[in-house]
Design a protein around this nucleic acid. Sequence first.
DNA 1: TGTTGTGAAGGCGTTCACAGCC
DNA 2: GGCTGTGAACGCCTTCACAACA
Lengths: 221, 221
Amino acid sequence: MSFDHVSDSTVRRLSNYLRVLDELGKEGEAVVSSQGLAERAGVTSAQVRKDLSYFGTFGRRGRGYEVAVLESEVRGILGLDRRWRVGLVGAGNIGSALFAYKEFARQGFDIVAVFDDAADRIGAKLGELEIRPMDDFERVCRERGVEIGVIATPAKDAQAIADRMARVGLRGILNFAPRKLFVPDAVALRTVNMAIELESLSFALAQDEEKRHGRRRFPAG
Amino acid sequence: MSFDHVSDSTVRRLSNYLRVLDELGKEGEAVVSSQGLAERAGVTSAQVRKDLSYFGTFGRRGRGYEVAVLESEVRGILGLDRRWRVGLVGAGNIGSALFAYKEFARQGFDIVAVFDDAADRIGAKLGELEIRPMDDFERVCRERGVEIGVIATPAKDAQAIADRMARVGLRGILNFAPRKLFVPDAVALRTVNMAIELESLSFALAQDEEKRHGRRRFPAG
DNA sequence: TGTTGTGAAGGCGTTCACAGCC
DNA sequence: GGCTGTGAACGCCTTCACAACA
């Protein structure tokens, strides 16, 4: 039995707990209650306890959780106790920013190859790495043991690249292109879609606008 | 009555429908069924119809939806039929990438001011805009009528900046710092947290790893 | 006939509330 | 006494299934 039944929301909250635990550790706190953790993470204490309960029992009744112990447990649960070899496709604005993004390496993701098809980028360097043409994609992925692909290309190219990533056997894809991708079940896919966040922010602001000005654009019910 | 009861998931799906409708339009399709839209968006047809039903009735029974009409309706719903004035805080890797990110302007978000506190960045230019020190934040926001703030700073500074943004009256915040922020109800907040996506990808891969190797790190149930 | 729009049913995640334990 | 761990209740979102209608 595996832990597929753990919801995505739970996993995402674990990430937040981990950051809070990291902070608490730096502040010298040795023990924290579900209540204390919850306040900093912006959730309820019951939620914290329920989330953790899916993976084991880490606390002591009447006392709380050892910060250091819980942090290390959560790291393990999230699979952050090992490193992954990453191939980056797209060396434009977003790709370059990702390459320089320290969080990436800090979480155990090492970019070991960069690809782009723009003639003026091929052969250029990103850090120590030479930017390769997509023709070399499959060969270089095999040579360097790439396990995870990051897509930072225009939306129109994203699905074709995801297909190649799946075909060459990559196990996970992090997609930054503003497009819904379809991949085989064997490939884990996560998407960072700024367009969606922008648009959902725009929606919230537009709603607010209506309230202020009393406009009614949609059926009142 | 407003549309606060519309779930966030519905709004996020509307964003996807909008991109699909845009594609369909470019492909010359005049009409699309909920089924057709659903397939491209990766959801069910019932979901599409239900999502749209919160805002009105846009289709014709027995026929489907006019692509152009629906696209324009969804644009309106998402508040993408106007432009917003944006202030960007943080001109490092992510801030610069955002500045150059075309989707931003395309969706109606115009960056009209850039702030950073690093001595070597103040006074430099990002596009046409001079990078200003945070001391000027409130004044420049008022002068230029900034309505939305974007946070692209290290995590440790993010909350303090969010506080200043709320205090000066910004109505929305888009946060790229990997930290949970707390803002007044009057301020709309959206977060793009790459660390969370990375970690949830890591979790999925670690689960997969266990399946392959038969390891059991968590209580089997 | 074909497809929408929508009440009702179902499923899933969150919250409650308390037994169990330190 | 205090706090965790968890079954049960709750509420929300999704899916179903069909009446309404072009």
